[in-house]
Design a binder for these strands. Structure first.
Length: 564
RNA sequence: UGCCCGAUGGUGUAAUUGGCAACACGUCUGACUCUGGAUCAGAAGAGCCCAGGUUCGAACCCUGGUCGGGCAACCA
């Protein structure tokens, strides 16, 4: 939230437009608490865009001492599954949303919705139509020209009878629909006698085969909000043109002057270098471009979690992103900033080498091992210290040695001295190569007086590098992730191609790293900072016998930037 | 050619709602540092889509354009 100073100098948070609406309502003598809802359709997993919606809805409820319901919008049995309900529930909990026992389903209201529909037919405000999908489309008109519907004057009794028979399963799918009789010449296409019910002989994940007619979103949503006593129905911009319809249905069922929900629309979240539509995410999963909905490259809540993103970092991100009505594409760097900031404070530091280069310390006693004290987290002294084994043979990162270093290269090179973090100063004496000229190992000498990393004579070294004892190192599979797509906007594909053509072939690189033995204790979802490399999160597939870490994000790398 | 939204530094969001544009990310300096991390100090970068109008005064109001997004699934 932005902060602005008032004349008196104290800080005052500026409000986003939703907060302004709510506070306006509150000031207008609105009675009762603020009550929002998060209404996912269980036809896929939640993504970071949903996280924005959840945090908005839940955040508003919390801020104004209200409540948030969870309501599964399950009006289309052909797309919805219990698997998704469970996954959504898990993500919601993980994000920290609380909804007590207020977990509802649009399908809970099927009977009530049906009765209201009958009422509307009796009032001459709804009718049974038998246009085929193609015909219906053709009869809708164009935005500029009015449409027609040949059945809108069907006698009430006849519609009543037909609707009853629709419900009883006498007709096949797509043969009849129930339509609201509103205005076939409305400039708003949503108002051109929208379909309220369609016939679907499909098994519903909750109501089974009880129903074969199902309400459409527009007919179900506002009514459900009304039944639950929702005050602020917050949704994304594409529903803006539905609002008159939302209000129209409520006009039919809510007594005049009675409290009723109002719909407010905000701009959905977009992130560059990824896709956010459920349809596309589903394709990535089903066509195996990624390894499931929780693949750490996915912008799904479960994917981000597995990648190592914390709940707090996501909240921070959403807060920084803000809420408004204009289309936006958020830079990935903001998300990365949020997780770095969070993990910098929380993650324990460890030593691990991803591209090992062997170093023999020639003047170090053969067979000797010693334990050196290392700080667990310089940002938090309470995290204490640990002992890390050191020996004559160690591994360092290949990138930390250059035979012919450029200027300002502070790491190891022939004749140069660097500090091994928490250990000793070493100087490179000799470069060993194989027949092809590849560097296979380094011979270095150490200064025994620099134990722990400080030199008694006060001499300085510019570089400090990480390392791991060859004898004590533990192997770990390390999964290095990069952006899933090469293009900021993956939908910008060449002629005849789609977003899949912009997939980044290098979005996942698997390496075998050597890490310090303390990592044997790592449990799935534990986050660590591999010093000088990045943040890593223990994967759910990790076992003590086969450690697996996902790289959440690299550390900021000023050197990489300089050397470009 | 219809209707509905929107338009502020590279990105996102603000401007006490008419009083000469702020914050964050990013970028770039420099300091410091046993992570080229973190931290600290500082800089550059928009004159608010355009054109008129109202006003002492407009990013905020009005008019007309321009550009972007959405709407014609028996999806949500």
């Amino acid at each position: 939230m932005e902060e602005i100073k008032t004349e008196s100098g104290e800080k005052k948070a500026s409000l986003n437009f939703i907060e302004q609406i709510i506070e306006g309502d509150l000031q207008d003598g609105y009675k009762g608490e603020v009550h929002t809802r998060f209404p996912p359709e269980p036809n896929g997993y939640l993504h970071i865009g949903h996280a924005k919606s959840i945090i908005l809805n839940y955040g508003m409820a919390k801020k104004y001492n209200g409540k948030m319901n969870v309501r599964f919008d399950d009006t289309n049995p052909t797309a919805e599954k219990t698997e998704y309900v469970d996954a959504i529930r898990e993500d919601l909990h993980w994000l920290g949303a609380e909804w007590d026992d207020r977990e509802y389903y649009a399908s809970n209201y099927f009977q009530q919705l049906y009765e209201w529909a009958v009422m509307l037919i009796k009032q001459g405000k709804a009718y049974v139509c038998q246009l085929t999908p193609e015909e219906l489309s053709a009869h809708r008109g164009t935005p500029a020209e009015p449409g027609t519907s040949p059945y809108r004057d069907r006698p009430i009794e006849e519609s009543l009878d037909l609707f009853e028979r629709m419900k009883n399963g006498e007709f096949p799918d797509n043969s009849y629909t129930l339509r609201a009789k509103i205005d076939m010449s409305s400039p708003n296409m949503q108002m051109r006698d929208p379909i309220m019910y369609r016939i679907l002989h499909a098994e519903h994940h909750r109501t089974g085969n009880k129903w074969c007619i199902y309400p459409m979103y527009d007919y179900a949503h506002g009514q459900s909000d009304y039944i639950e006593g929702i005050t602020h129905s917050i949704c994304t911009l594409e529903f803006e043109v539905h609002r008159p319809l939302y209000d129209w249905f409520l006009d039919q069922i809510a007594p005049a002057g009675a409290p009723r929900p109002h719909q407010h629309e905000f701009a959905r979240l977009n992130l560059n270098y990824t896709v956010m539509s459920k349809r596309k995410l589903k394709r990535l999963v089903e066509e195996h471009y990624v390894n499931g909905w929780d693949d750490p490259r996915m912008p799904t809540v479960s994917g981000l979690r597995r990648r190592g993103y914390t709940k707090d970092s996501l909240w921070k991100f959403v807060e920084k992103v803000g809420v408004a009505k204009r289309d936006n594409i958020i830079d990935l760097s903001l998300l990365e900033f949020c997780i770095r900031e969070d993990l910098n404070k929380k993650a324990l530091r460890v030593l691990g080498v991803i591209n090992p280069l062997k170093v023999v310390i020639t003047n170090y006693p053969d067979g000797k091992t010693e334990l050196l004290e290392a700080v667990n987290n310089p940002e938090n002294p309470d995290d204490g210290t640990r002992m890390v084994p050191f020996g004559k043979e160690i591994y360092i990162e290949r990138e930390d040695f250059m035979e012919n270093p450029p200027k300002k290269y502070f790491r190891l090179s022939p004749g140069a001295e660097v500090r091994l973090r928490y250990a000793y100063f070493i100087t490179c004496q000799e470069v060993i190569k194989d027949a092809d000229g590849n560097i296979t190992e380094l011979h270095c000498t150490y200064d025994p007086l620099t134990r722990g990393g400080d030199s008694p004579d006060g001499r300085k070294v510019k570089g400090t590098i990480h390392w791991v004892s060859a004898k004590d190192a533990v192997k770990a599979e390390v999964r290095l992730y990069d952006r899933l797509f090469n293009k900021e906007n993956p939908d910008e594909a060449e002629e005849g191609k789609d977003f899949l053509s912009n997939l980044n072939p290098d979005s996942l690189t698997v390496k075998e790293a050597l890490v310090e033995p303390s990592l044997l204790d790592a449990k799935p979802l534990d986050s660590y900072q591999f010093e000088r490399i990045g943040y890593f999160c223990c994967d759910k597939e990790s076992t003590p016998g086969h450690l697996v870490f996902n790289r959440t994000v690299t550390l900021k790398d000023t050197w990489a930037k300089m050397s470009k």
